[in-house]
Amino acid sequence: MNGLAGTTALLLSRIRDVPDHPEPGVTFKDITPLLADPVAFTALTEALAEISVRNGATKIVGLEARGFILGAPVAVRAGLGFIPVRKAGKLPGATLSQSYDLEYGSAEIEVHAEDLAPGDRVMVVDDVLATGGTAEASLQLIRRAGAQVAGVAVLVELGFLGGRARLEPALDGVPLEALLTV
Rank of each mutant, 00 (worst) to 15 (best):
Leu167Pro: 02
Val128Cys: 12
Ala137Met: 01
Gln148Cys: 10
Leu158Ile: 14
Val125Met: 05
Ala145Asp: 14
Ala170Cys: 10
Gly173Arg: 09
Gln140Thr: 15
Val124Met: 08
Leu155Ala: 09
Gly146His: 09
Ala107Tyr: 00
Glu103Asn: 10
Ala107Lys: 05
Asp127Trp: 08
Ala135Asn: 01
Ala130Pro: 02
Asp127Glu: 14
Leu155Val: 09
Arg166Tyr: 10
Leu116Thr: 09
Ala113Ser: 13
Leu167Ser: 04
Pro175Trp: 10
Val111Gln: 01
Tyr104Pro: 04
Gly151Glu: 04
Glu103Ser: 09
Val128Gln: 10
Ala150Met: 00
Ser138Val: 12
Ala135His: 01
Asp127Arg: 14
Arg164Val: 14
Val128Phe: 13
Thr131Asp: 04
Thr134Lys: 03
Glu110Asp: 01
Gly151Pro: 05
Val152Met: 09
Asp172Trp: 11
Arg164Pro: 08
Glu108Tyr: 04
Gly133Pro: 00
Val149Asn: 00
Thr131Trp: 04
Ile109Arg: 03
Arg143His: 13
Gly146Asp: 13
Ala130Trp: 00
Gly146Phe: 10
Glu136Gly: 11
Gly119Gln: 13
Val156Asp: 02
Ser106Thr: 15
Glu103Asp: 15
Leu141Pro: 01
Met123Glu: 07
Ala135Val: 15
Glu110Ile: 00
Ala165Arg: 14
Glu110Thr: 05
Glu103His: 07
Ala113Leu: 14
Leu141Tyr: 01
Gln140Cys: 09
Glu157Gln: 14
Ala165Thr: 12
Arg164Gly: 13
Asp115Trp: 12
His112Gly: 08
Met123Arg: 04
Gly151Gln: 03
Arg121Trp: 11
Arg143Cys: 08
Pro169Lys: 08
Leu161Phe: 12
Leu158Glu: 00
Leu129Phe: 08
Gly119Phe: 07
Val128His: 03
Gly162Ala: 13
Leu167Gln: 08
Ala165Asp: 15
Pro175Val: 04
Ala137Cys: 07
Val128Asn: 05
Ile142Phe: 02
Asp115Gln: 15
Gln148Lys: 14
Ile109Leu: 11
Ala147His: 02
Leu155Phe: 07
Gly133Ile: 04
Leu161Pro: 02
Gly151Ser: 04
Ala150Asp: 03
Val125Tyr: 00
Pro118Phe: 11
Gly163Arg: 02
Ala117Pro: 12
Thr134Val: 08
Val152Gln: 02
Val154Phe: 06
Gly159Tyr: 10
Ala117Thr: 12
Leu171Ala: 11
Phe160Asp: 06
Gly119Ala: 08
